[in-house]
């Protein structure tokens, strides 16, 4: 996040100050908008202010933040991963089919799911780096193949459930009676992602590549390797999110998480990570995730009819993008 303190703000009008704040502090804006949305939701429907609903918001935000972390890492490196939704759906199927509602298969499930994530990430990374095609198109093609593969493996429908123990670790609420246990995963995983992006050599190289690939190459960074690793991390995170996501939805549905691919990408963008690479951070993404979750929470609470829901959802997203993710003007 850029610091605004250096500029002389005393001579600015209020409008200019607001504009400057919006431009320099996108995560803050996302948080303010999220808070506003939550207040509006409560005003529209006072019944929605309760412990369970609050816990649900935490759960969904964390569930979205995990794949979104992968998207952030890839976007910072100047790439784009459209596969996270398909990977989540695939590993959700893997989870249900391996566990079959029985305890004691966790390690096996996790290994299988992570293998799926690793393979997809590797395929994405290698193809995108080796071919030089637009990442969006390549990851979309791979995502299609993965979805089709899942249909071939399962025959279009599948039985199976996540184990009770796994569900306990995700949806049960021990802390204060409303904080869902999924927080455990966040406590382990999020600092790790922070560390990777902020302090590790990999993270620093990633920012450099996103900012200026040629410069990174000239300073001796192995650009290809770093990029491929970023896609692998994204695949692994999405795979893990699929496992705990299945514990949350507890159903046997194909393509259950496909929309998460798009949602995660939007959360990252709304948080302020740039499409051009080199800019962004995980804490910004978490703010973006919170905003996305509260947005769908508001739309559900308002009980719009289905078509109005579609329109409001799309229009709000366009408005959010217009607020602070515009490309450079033609006149420069």
């Amino acid at each position: 996040m850029a610091k605004t303190g250096i500029a002389d703000t005393s001579s600015m009008t209020f409008g200019q100050k607001v504009k400057m704040f919006v431009n320099n502090n996108q995560a803050g804006v996302a948080l303010i908008l999220a808070a506003l949305l939550y207040i509006i939701t409560i005003i529209c429907n006072p019944g929605s202010l309760n412990k369970t609903a609050f816990g649900n918001i935490i759960l969904l935000t964390i569930l979205l933040a995990i794949p979104a972390a992968g998207c952030t890492i890839v976007l910072i490196g100047g790439g784009l991963d459209f596969c996270v939704g398909a990977v989540m759906s695939a590993t959700a199927v893997v989870t249900a089919q391996t566990m079959m509602g029985q305890n004691g298969h966790f390690i096996q499930t996790l290994a299988l799911a992570l293998l799926v994530g690793l393979l997809v990430g590797l395929a994405n990374g290698i193809t995108i780096v080796a071919t030089g095609l637009p990442p969006m198109i390549v990851s979309m093609a791979i995502c299609n193949v993965l979805t089709r593969l899942m249909y071939v493996f399962t025959g279009g429908s599948f039985a199976g459930q996540p184990s009770p123990a796994l569900m306990q670790t995700v949806t049960a609420r021990y802390l204060f009676g409303f904080v869902p246990n999924i927080v455990i995963y966040a406590v382990i995983l999020f600092p790790l992602i922070f560390f990777i992006l902020k302090f590790s050599r990999f993270g620093k190289q990633l920012y450099l590549i996103g900012n200026n690939e040629t410069a990174a190459r000239l300073t001796g960074v192995k650009v290809e390797k770093v990029k491929i690793i970023s896609y692998i991390i994204s695949g692994l995170l999405a795979a893990f999110a699929g496992v705990i996501g299945e514990a949350y939805i507890y159903g046997a549905r194909m393509q259950a998480f496909d929309d998460y691919g798009y949602k995660a990408l939007l959360a990252v963008i709304v948080g302020g990570t740039s499409f051009d690479g080199g800019v962004g951070s995980f804490e910004q993404t978490i703010c973006g995730c919170l905003l996305m979750v509260l947005l769908s929470n508001w739309i559900t609470t308002m009980q719009f009819s289905v078509p109005v829901q579609y329109i409001v959802n799309g229009a709000v997203l366009v408005a959010l993008m217009a607020l602070y993710n515009r490309s450079g003007a033609v006149r420069q």
Partner: peptide, 27 residues
């Protein structure tokens, strides 16, 4: 206009517009 004049990212913007148009269709 959204992509060119306003300058939104083409891919995400048109994806969001997919849901808007879907809603109009169903209306």
């Amino acid at each position: 206009a959204l992509e060119s004049a306003v300058g939104l990212p083409s891919f995400l913007c048109s994806y969001a517009m997919t849901t808007v148009i879907k809603g109009v269709n169903v209306l």
